[in-house]
Write a protein that binds this DNA or RNA. Structure first.
Length: 472
RNA sequence: GACCCCAUCGUCUAGAGGCCUAGGACACCGGCCUUUCACGCCGGCAACGCGGGUUCGAAUCCCGCUGGGGUCACCA
């Protein structure tokens, strides 16, 4: 049997970080077993579904590198089929019309809860004579669920989960307006699409019991279920807006690499011994549901950052340059030419180990293509450019102008010799220079920076420091 | 409230009765390296929620408690 999984987002917002992990697990499971992953847009809630959300979800998946097999299925397009199944169930005596009003149902739930009973529909129309139907009320269609006994779901993640059938009520298949509910649509589509494995968030575990009976009522094979725990915020509460970013798009904007995101999401609730850095190839080879943990995991930004820093270091310089150029261009309103790109690429080796995100990288790299502006905004750096540093800088510029070679090793020799000559520690010489050249008190190796900047630019930047030029 | 699920360092986790003096990673704290900041390397702090069983032996099995989470819509 070929494994067919599915990822079924509701297009009501961004691709949520938890959904992204669900998609990843479905994708990995399908790939691991040589199967397929289908993508289905669950747009049955027409009021809240938007094209914008669909695009955002597709973009998010694409960015993460999670592709799907076959055409995208739009659930609303199958509405007629869903309704036909409901009719079939009515004809078979497995479903019926219910004429309860919303108020009636609300009252029913409230009194049930007050009595300490499960807040379920009391099946009052299940065996009632259809002739009793009140005039002018459009009925909903409800399925007949078993009223006694137990139902067990052999869950691939949670193990066997059993519930008493009294906990299951005759849920609605078709709304009063004739449109199918989620519960019906999902089951019909999963069947029609040949889904063999339903891997989804833990919040759907209760639905699985209802869906299981719907599969049985239609005499359809029941897919395997795997309910993975949800991701929680750092405080252990359900992930919500107050926890900050929720959509993968936002993490992308924060400068995270897709491979870091993938690795992080994978390790959240899943493990393979002590492995931490896991490539997609390894993930496909190793992934299976039995290694998925059963307790909810908290989202830890620091760990994501650390993984991102790792992948940043592994990335090629050209890839990184292409990713940060637009960032530098927009924040500084400049246009970076090929020369600038070359400088950035050469500087990347020294920049990479100093960044956690692409945003850091772009910010730290900007000086290679943009001259510092005086007075410096960076307070610590500005402090480095006070006397006697200005005088030292002027002398340094002079010494540098006389340099025969502009290789970093040679520049270092020149500066060390200069320091000894003037009885100054290297720090006294280097720090003001760093501030003058990079506008910051922290940067990659100064000698490397100077080599990349080149002699003209280096000298020009030193002379641009207020107070230096007259002495040089 | 009812039902279901879960429970190892601050966080993610390893651990499938003796390999556990509980391992790794992130974070944190020291140190080394060093022109700065990082990276890297070395070291440190830090956990089996509680109470009962079962067993020669329990983080691992069972029960209870406590704590956390999920679900209870003509939403998905």
């Amino acid at each position: 049997m070929t494994v067919v999984t599915r990822f079924p987002p509701s297009p009501t917002g961004r691709l949520h970080i938890g959904s992204a992990r669900t998609a990843l697990f479905n994708w990995l499971y399908a790939r691991h077993h040589g199967g397929r992953m289908a993508l289905r847009i669950e747009d049955t809630d027409r009021k809240r579904s938007t094209q914008e959300a669909i695009d955002a979800i597709l973009d998010g998946l694409t960015w993460l590198g999670l592709d799907w097999d076959g055409d995208i299925v739009f659930q609303t397009r199958n509405a007629e089929r869903h309704a036909a199944v409901a009719k079939e169930l009515i004809d078979a005596g497995k479903a019926y019309h219910c004429y309860c009003t919303p108020e009636e149902l609300k009252e029913m739930r409230e009194s049930a809860r007050a009595a300490g009973r499960p807040a379920l529909y009391d099946r009052r129309w299940r065996d009632r004579d259809p002739a009793d139907a009140p005039a002018g009320v459009d009925p909903v269609v409800r399925i007949k669920m078993p009223q006694c006994g137990k139902t067990t779901i052999p869950d691939l993640v949670q193990g066997d989960v059993t519930i008493a059938n009294e906990q299951l009520d005759d849920f609605i298949l078709l709304r009063a307006d004739g449109t199918p509910t989620y519960m019906l649509s999902v089951v019909v589509d999963d069947h029609d699409m040949g889904i063999t494995h339903i891997i989804r968030g833990d919040d759907h575990l209760n639905n699985a019991f209802r869906q299981l009976h719907l599969f049985r009522a239609m005499d359809w094979p029941v897919p395997a279920f795997g309910h993975i725990p949800l991701i929680h915020g750092a405080d252990g509460q359900k992930l919500s807006k107050r926890h900050g970013a929720l959509g993968v798009e936002e993490y992308r904007a924060m400068g995270f690499l897709p491979e870091a995101m993938r690795n992080y999401l994978l390790r959240l609730g899943w493990s393979h011994g002590d492995e931490e850095i896991i490539s997609t190839e390894q993930a496909v080879a190793w992934f299976d549901l039995d290694r998925v943990g059963r307790s909810p995991a908290r989202f830890d930004l620091a760990k994501l950052e650390s993984l991102n820093a790792h992948y940043l270091k592994e990335s090629s310089n050209t890839r990184l340059v292409e990713m940060i150029v637009p960032l530098i261009e927009t924040t500084h309103d400049v246009s970076i030419d090929d020369n600038g790109r070359t400088r950035l690429a050469r500087g990347m080796e020294g920049l990479k180990p100093r960044a956690k995100t692409l945003l850091d990288l772009a910010q730290n790299a900007a000086f290679y293509v943009i001259r510092p502006r005086f007075p410096l905004e960076n307070a610590k750096a500005a402090k480095l450019l006070k006397e006697p540093a200005i005088a030292i800088l002027a002398d340094t510029a002079a010494a540098l102008s006389a340099a025969v070679s502009w290789k970093s090793d040679d520049i270092e020799s020149v500066l060390r010799a200069f320091g000894e000559e003037h009885d100054l520690g290297l720090g006294k010489v280097a720090q003001p220079l760093r501030a003058a050249l990079t506008g910051s008190n922290a940067s990659p190796s100064l000698f490397e920076v100077m080599e990349i900047l080149g002699p003209e630019e280096t000298i020009a930047r030193i002379r641009a420091v207020p107070g230096v030029l007259p002495n040089s």
